[in-house]
Amino acid sequence: MGALVMKARVYVMPKAGVLDPQGKAISHALEGLGFGGVNDVRAGKVIELDLAETDPARAKAAAEEMARRLLANTVIESFRVEIA
């Protein structure tokens, strides 16, 4: 029997079309450092979950529900769940 451990990674990003002031500031800083060719920067966050689960589909569904209820504010953020 496998251990009840499954990692889920939740990527939370500002929604397309929502202003991302942090991304903009990072973009300006990169430009200041002499990095050319950076068209756009978006800054989000990654939340890692250690789940007591063996079934990837169930783990993903649980993480998605967590993202909808708390981890992301879907008015301003989009999210994506990866199971590792």
């Binding site: 929502v18 002031p21 500031a25």
Partner: peptide
């Protein structure tokens, strides 16, 4: 807003 009692979201100030 986070509790869903009012609509929308509050982002970082655009000037940071």
């Amino acid at each position: 807003i986070e509790a869903g009692l009012l609509p929308g979201g509050l982002l970082r100030n655009h000037t940071l």
